[in-house]
Write a protein that binds this DNA or RNA. Structure first.
Length: 400
DNA sequence: TAATTCTCAC
């Protein structure tokens, strides 16, 4: 991107505001949020002013790529936009609503929904879809259904995304009958289910112990001409793995490749986890070794999964070796890496080592997450200590 | 010529 931009200048082709907005979008999608914000200065230096697209792009960048406190920064950009006398539009609010929902802050999302109407902007299909999805994902199904009705009352017709969001909500609550009813309603509304619709249901049936139903849905996909994609196979492979059928899962990987679908990192992560869960982490490590041969790149999840496998087998040495292997590949330990190792050491009663890892994690500026607290709290309870106020980390070794 | 919504893996 930078090369093309320089080339443009070299050939004396004047960039315009659109050029800069595209640039910002690229930086945001690459997670380079600070660089993206710096482009605002370039825009001004070239004699332009950031417009609504500039701000919407930056807000969405923070919503999707930001770390802790990202919605605070997204909101700050929104305020900056107002200060610069740029009026927000429906896309601004849709972006914020989705961002708040993904941040599990449904309250703020609902406030944004109210605020947009107060400003005279009518919620559109995407607005409703974002909020219905947010409510569904946060267990507020009744509110999601109410909003669906409101949406219909306002003259908007639910589309396949709306259906997928609510179906997913029912699936997460294991209300498969209701999910199925919605699925059957799709045809009646002259809508067409897509791969996401099927994948949602397949995954839910599998997780609810109805593997047969999951595979049957896969077959009806082929029948209806909606082609199963890598995610479909990942759901089914995960299903087999959960039922300890790792060999059958590996066969399914071969089948998907015969259909011309390439396994991705998730596929391998599922299979690696599958071998780990049947206490065969060395087979899992063999799979890790196969990944480069088929052009699939391991990620943090890959290594963390394998480490967890070795830890659960009590093979801490092997787990630490995986960490070294990961770091050789240029991947730094993340919170999950530490959680996995801390849990592994706790399980072996090696509290001093667990504590050393905990401190190392804090020193590196990594923020403990809920799982970290759960591990520590569980360990304390087991040792007969009563955990104090939530949110406070203890030295594990002080218990020994 | 640029910006927004739905599924799966630690």
């Amino acid at each position: 991107m930078e090369y093309v931009f320089k080339e443009m200048i070299k050939r004396r082709i004047q960039p315009n505001l659109t050029t800069f907005n595209i640039f910002i979008n690229g930086l945001c999608k690459a997670g380079k949020l600070n660089k993206a914000e710096d482009v605002i200065e370039d825009i001004k230096a070239w004699g332009f002013s950031p417009n609504i697209v500039t701000y919407n792009t930056l807000i969405d960048g923070h919503c999707k790529k930001g770390s802790a406190g990202k919605m605070y920064r997204a909101d700050a950009i929104y305020k900056e936009m107002l200060a610069n006398k740029i009026c927000p539009n429906e896309i601004t609010f849709n972006t914020l609503i989705d961002g708040f929902c993904k941040d599990e802050n449904v309250l703020a999302a609902k406030k944004a929904f109210e605020e947009m109407q107060r400003q005279g902007i009518k919620p559109n299909l995407v607005t409703y879809n974002s909020l219905i999805n947010g409510l569904s994902n946060n267990g507020k199904l009744d509110e999601a259904i109410d909003l669906w009705d409101k949406m219909v009352d306002s003259g908007l017709k639910p589309n396949i995304v709306t259906y997928n969001a609510l179906i997913n909500g029912f699936c997460k609550k294991k209300m498969m009958k209701e999910a199925r009813k919605l699925f059957d309603d799709i045809d009646k509304q002259d809508l067409v289910p897509n791969a996401i619709t099927f994948n949602t249901l397949i995954d839910a049936y599998c997780k609810d112990g109805m593997m047969e139903e999951g595979f049957a849905l896969r077959n009806s996909m082929l029948y209806e001409g909606i082609f199963p994609n890598v995610s479909t196979y990942n759901c089914l492979i995960a299903c087999l793995c959960r039922n300890q059928k790792v060999r059958a899962a590996k066969e399914l990987l071969v089948e998907m490749e015969n259909y011309g679908l390439k396994a991705n990192t998730v596929t391998y992560n599922i299979l690696i986890d599958g071998w780990c869960k049947v206490n065969d982490s060395s087979k899992a490590e063999k799979l890790l070794g196969e990944m480069p041969n088929v052009g699939v790149k391991p990620n943090h999840v890959t290594y963390n999964t394998l480490m967890d496998g070795y830890c659960m087998e009590g093979n801490l040495k092997a787990a630490l070796k995986v960490r070294t292997r990961m770091e050789k590949e240029g991947k730094r330990a993340n919170v999950v890496t530490y959680n996995v190792l801390i849990k592994g050491f706790c399980k072996q009663g090696k509290l001093e080592d667990a504590n050393r890892l905990l401190n190392e994690m804090l020193e590196k500026g990594l923020n403990p997450n809920r799982t970290t607290y759960d591990i520590v709290r569980l360990e304390m309870l087991e040792k007969g200590f009563i955990p104090d106020i939530e949110g406070h980390l203890y030295n594990i070794s002080s218990m020994s």
